[in-house]
């Protein structure tokens, strides 16, 4: 089991490092921009007043004091850029892990060993969880030492709350991606279907924010539950969000396991 985990981690180390560094560099960039954002706060508030309230909510900037580091990061980094980064990383990781190996038939190497399918699945699954945790921790908590370095005020507990929420969100994305990876025999299909699903969720989230008549549809978008303002600015995490994310992650992962145990590995 350890051998499979080690191998999976080693094979995907470069994408992991690249995405993590990308996430950290973006946080660093926004932290460095904080003084200029604070200086232009008056103009920014005027621009924001001119924008529709729904869109402001969707962007997570409604009623927020942009002068704080947490508000800046919530608006600029964690509302859209970070989820996209995380989704790209997780979907590409999960897609390559099963569907990608079935596609180029390299999965035969591990399947021809005396390991049960359950063990093979869990080894691969765990390697994804390890990178997901490391990615989330690195790209959320990195703001604390950076803020310290620049001598800015920061609310450390808020970043831990952000990390918990992001981790739950990541587990749901990972669960669905690994389900698609277990189901299909080509990574293209996994990327395509996951991409369509998550983009549709995001578009729906924006539409719902702009149009009250679509309000009931908000519950089917992950982005509704990924309430960054509450987590990062107000240090609050909604129990429903955690429940939805963890339930979806768990159910999708279990389905992925069931499919993996019984499917044909042939293209």
């Amino acid at each position: 089991m350890i051998a499979i985990i080690k191998r999976a981690l080693r094979d995907r180390f470069i994408p992991f490092i690249s995405y993590s560094i990308g996430g950290i560099v973006l946080v660093w960039m926004y932290i460095a921009l904080l003084p200029s954002v604070q200086q232009s706060q008056v103009q920014l508030q005027d621009v924001m007043k001119a924008m529709p309230e729904g869109l402001m909510k969707a962007l997570g900037v409604s009623g927020v004091n942009l002068a704080s580091l947490e508000a800046l990061l919530a608006m600029k980094q964690y509302n859209m850029i970070w989820p996209l980064l995380m989704i790209f990383f997780i979907v590409s990781f999960a897609g390559g892990m099963i569907a990608g190996e079935v596609e180029n038939r390299t999965i035969e190497i591990v399947l021809s060993s005396a390991k049960s399918r359950a063990k093979i699945f869990f080894s691969k699954y765990l390697s994804g969880i390890i990178y997901l945790i490391l990615f989330v921790v690195a790209t959320t908590l990195c703001a604390i030492p950076m803020a310290k370095l620049y001598g800015y005020e920061y609310a450390a507990p808020n970043y831990y709350t952000l990390m918990y929420l992001s981790l739950c969100f990541g587990l749901a994305v990972y669960g669905l991606s690994i389900l698609f990876s277990s189901l299909f025999s080509s990574r293209g299909k996994v990327y395509g279907i996951s991409g369509i699903l998550f983009v549709a969720m995001y578009v729906l989230f924006i539409l719902v924010s702009l149009k009250d008549s679509l309000k009931n549809l908000q519950y089917i978008s992950f982005f509704y539950y990924y309430n960054i303002n509450d987590a990062l600015i107000h240090n609050k995490i909604d129990g429903l969000s955690v429940f939805v994310f963890l339930s979806i992650g768990l159910i999708a992962s279990l389905l992925a396991l069931i499919i993996f145990l019984d499917r044909d590995f042939a293209v």
Partner: peptide, 28 residues
């Protein structure tokens, strides 16, 4: 107790021969 011959086209392009042999040892 089975040795299965993996076709040359089903090996991992990015791995070296050593990588394959070490992985095989880790598994078998």
């Amino acid at each position: 107790k089975i040795g299965y011959l993996i076709a040359g086209s089903n090996l991992v392009e990015q791995w070296t021969g050593y990588d394959h042999l070490s992985y095989q040892e880790a598994l078998h």
